[in-house]
């Protein structure tokens, strides 16, 4: 039996229905969900360590000593949700091709397991920083699927880039956030980050580079989705990504979207109508940066 006998039996195939553009859009989504550990859903939440902070983030001003260095603590008279700085109003530093001044450590080995203690420590650190930086914002869920999980929790298990994700709610509605701790294998430059993280063709991306109080390199990306064709944003949506690259090679990626994960989960098809659930992400770039600069928020396996 030969291949040509099969080909003869098949004859002339009908026109293909395989749309490579749709395949690529789905592939991008699949890749991102995999990166964020959502494909398998969230496992057991690490809540014990957050008992002290409670299930709900407390409103009111935060103690100054809980605010990361370099950022002013919110005052009682300040708005609980300061508006995100507009990309147009933010001084835009042109992307530079500077060579990183440190040698990043190798990424964690595949299969390294985040221990229960490590996960609990990261969870406590993150939620404490979040409470300090964004008082009055309520953690609605650890993901769109596990609604009862009301803290941003790092999961135990095998990770190269542990992440805590969830939906936040304030007066403007619900939106998603995610905080990923990893080690720096790049990208380090605005152009690289835009290409690696937000390569959807219909997205508009803006990026600003700056330095942190301890010499950290900070990249702040604002991206929008005017047509509603990308995975995470929805029509008219907006997202922020802040990368904090430390001199020791550790990295924090903090993200916020103007749509909740539960809404994003429903947007499996790029053709599905999808509108953002709010005008701005639930955390501003300044707030994301403040959380990401928290000294204890680092992963060094």
């Amino acid at each position: 039996m030969q291949q040509n006998e099969f080909d003869h039996a098949i004859g002339t195939p009908p026109p293909s229905r395989v749309d490579l553009d749709t395949v690529i859009v789905k592939g991008r989504r699949s890749q991102r969900l995999r990166t964020w550990g959502m494909s398998g859903g969230l496992a057991v939440a690490v809540l014990a360590a957050t008992a002290g902070t409670g299930l709900w983030l407390n409103a009111g001003p935060a103690p100054a000593d809980r605010v990361p260095a370099g950022f002013a603590a919110p005052t009682a008279g300040s708005s609980p949700m300061p508006p995100a700085p507009s990309p147009k109003s933010t001084p835009k530093a042109p992307p530079t091709r500077a060579t990183p001044s440190w040698t990043p450590p190798p990424p964690p080995a595949e299969g390294h397991r985040l221990t229960k203690e490590e996960a609990a420590q990261l969870t406590t650190t993150l939620n404490t920083a979040l409470t300090a930086v964004a008082p009055g914002v309520q953690v609605v869920a650890g993901s769109g699927k596990v609604r009862e999980e009301q803290a941003l929790s790092f999961r135990t298990g095998a990770h190269t880039n542990p992440a805590a994700i969830g939906d936040l709610r304030d007066q403007a509605g619900e939106g998603a956030v995610g905080f990923e701790v990893t080690t720096g294998t790049g990208p380090y430059l605005c152009a690289d980050v835009a290409a690696a993280e937000y390569d959807d063709f219909d997205q508009q991306t803006d990026c600003v580079e700056s330095a942190g109080p301890a010499g950290e390199r900070i990249l702040a990306l604002t991206h929008s989705d005017p047509k509603g064709t990308t995975v995470y944003l929805g029509k008219g949506g907006k997202g922020f990504l802040v990368l904090v690259l430390r001199a020791d090679g550790t990295m924090v990626k903090a993200r916020a979207w103007s749509a909740s994960f539960s809404k994003i989960d429903m947007h499996s098809n790029p053709q599905t109508p999808f509108n953002a659930t709010r005008a701005e992400p639930p955390l501003s770039i300044a707030q994301l940066t403040a959380v990401a600069l928290t000294p204890g928020l680092r992963y060094t396996p």
């Binding site: 395989v18 490579l20 749709t22 395949v23 690529i24 789905k26 592939g27 991008r28 890749q31 995999r34």
Partner: peptide
């Protein structure tokens, strides 16, 4: 039709 679906599924997985 199913063949096209299978190819699409395989290519999405390959992309990942």
């Amino acid at each position: 039709h199913l063949a096209d679906d299978l190819v699409s599924i395989a290519l999405v997985k390959l992309y990942r």
